[in-house]
């Protein structure tokens, strides 16, 4: 009864969310006294696959067909489920990223295996197989018991710290016979150069307090200094000051960075729901009554246009020290 970890790749590179999944899966395997195995789909250099051993995975099934360089949920789910069955996997780990959201449910249905989607902690196996997940868009947690023989966990990005040691994984290279994908991909548009919001360690976010899209420069300077992703509140996205994919909150993207800096955001309950799993929250707002101060760890009551450039300067000083 091994643990099987789905390792997501894009253009031959392994995503950070998958490294988290490997570290998590290796910890689950250790807890259950069994081996951690991985599955990689599509073209990735052999050395890079074997090197994933340093995150704790012992054996990796690498299905190399080129058609898999594009994520097709139906094909992926079949290959993951078949590999799980062939190797007697008792637990399957998938990242709860965009790819994971497309496939985890399908794997669950194929294996008749209970799914906890969006897990944030290791399972508690003292009484059943109980996994904690975020519910009510970050306002609460639920402890969910998986009662089926095979268990599937999709892990929320940024909720499990990647650790590495020495180690090389044994790679089993397979060419599978694969059906024609039903979905035709006619265009792909990847945003390059930006830090993806859900993977970012630090997020700098702006609200209506910045008064207009032309004032975003100070926020972008701060983000650049911190290697942070930029985000915004819903009114800002609705007013088209910033693109919709930057909207964080209950009906936008939900994030859990190490550091969230909110500038000119009052902190409505819907906004807090999307960001309150951040480890440290800093609020800069000129209104001392802004509800965000009640949720924050650190705050400055002051004018963003004065405070933010100073903050950027001080961080530059720190980094060059």
């Amino acid at each position: 009864m091994s643990v099987l970890i789905f390792i997501d790749q894009s253009e031959g590179q392994i995503k950070k969310s998958s490294l988290e999944a490997i570290t998590y899966g290796a910890a689950v395997a250790k807890q259950l006294n069994t081996t951690a195995e991985g599955i990689v789909l599509g073209t990735v250099a052999d050395d890079n696959v074997a090197a994933l051993g340093k995150y704790g995975v012992q054996k990796i099934h690498h299905i190399t067909n080129e058609v898999l360089n594009h994520v097709d949920a139906q094909l992926y789910a079949k290959l993951i489920a078949d590999t799980a069955t062939a190797n007697g996997a008792g637990v399957v780990i998938i990242s709860h990223n965009q790819t994971g959201k497309a496939i985890a449910g399908r794997v669950s249905a194929r294996l008749k295996a209970g799914l906890v989607a969006g897990a944030i902690a290791l399972p508690d196996t003292t009484n059943g197989f109980v996994v904690k997940k975020s519910v009510f868009s970050g306002k609460a947690f639920a402890n969910v018991n998986i009662t089926s023989a095979i268990k599937i966990i999709s892990l929320n990005p940024n909720s499990f710290h990647v650790t590495q040691a020495e180690g090389t994984a044994e790679v089993i290279t397979v060419t599978a016979s694969i059906a024609e994908p039903k979905v035709k991909v006619t265009a792909v548009n990847k945003v390059s150069g930006e830090v993806p919001l859900t993977e970012a360690e630090i997020v700098v976010s702006g609200g209506r307090g910045l008064k207009g899209p032309e004032h975003w420069g100070i926020l972008e300077d701060l983000a650049k200094t911190l290697h942070a992703a930029t985000a915004c509140s819903r009114p800002v996205a609705d007013a088209h000051w910033r693109p919709h994919h930057e909207h964080v909150g209950q009906t936008g993207v939900q994030i859990a960075p190490n550091l969230y800096i909110a500038i000119g955001i009052s902190g409505a309950i819907q906004h807090l729901a999307g960001v309150n799993r951040s480890k440290v929250m800093v609020v800069i707002n000129k209104d001392p009554e802004a509800p965000f101060f009640k949720a924050a760890d650190y705050g400055i009551v002051g004018d963003a246009f004065e405070v933010v450039p100073k903050l950027t300067e001080e961080i530059k000083k720190l980094k060059s020290a």
Binding site: A113, A140, N145, V283, Y298
Partner: peptide, 18 residues
């Protein structure tokens, strides 16, 4: 295939440091 055992609320914040 799953059942909810119980719920938890996030721990209260220690309070903001201004």
């Amino acid at each position: 295939l799953t059942s909810i055992v119980n719920f938890e609320l996030p721990p209260a914040k220690a309070g903001v440091k201004l």
